[in-house]
């Protein structure tokens, strides 16, 4: 699980072009949206694509994303339980 969290942080930094942010800067329970990393609605769509492309998880209900994308912790927990890749 720890490896998955580190992997996720790296992917998010790369895919979302987060300049001047390192894996070490992101805490497992930091909010990804709002006051945390400050991600926006396009970033949310990119995270949905990332889930599908890298972990084989298709999120069809946008409401699901709200709880899954709360933090690295919640994302990793969901991926670990549902991944097909």
């Amino acid at each position: 699980m720890e490896d998955l969290k580190i992997e996720l942080k790296g992917k998010i930094i790369e895919v979302l072009n987060l300049e001047d942010i390192t894996v070490e800067d992101i805490q497992d329970n930091d909010p990804l949206f709002g006051d945390g990393l400050g991600l926006d609605s396009i970033d949310a769509l990119e995270l949905i694509v990332l889930m599908d492309k890298d972990y084989g998880i298709k999120l069809s209900d946008p409401k699901e994303g709200r709880s899954i994308f709360q933090s690295i912790e919640t994302m990793a927990t969901y991926i670990a339980a549902n991944r097909t890749k």
Binding site: L16, N17, I42, D43, L45, E46, V49, D52, K53
Partner: peptide
């Protein structure tokens, strides 16, 4: 088939 929303916009 993984179009990037960040590119598409």
């Amino acid at each position: 088939f993984y179009p990037s929303p960040a590119v598409f916009v």
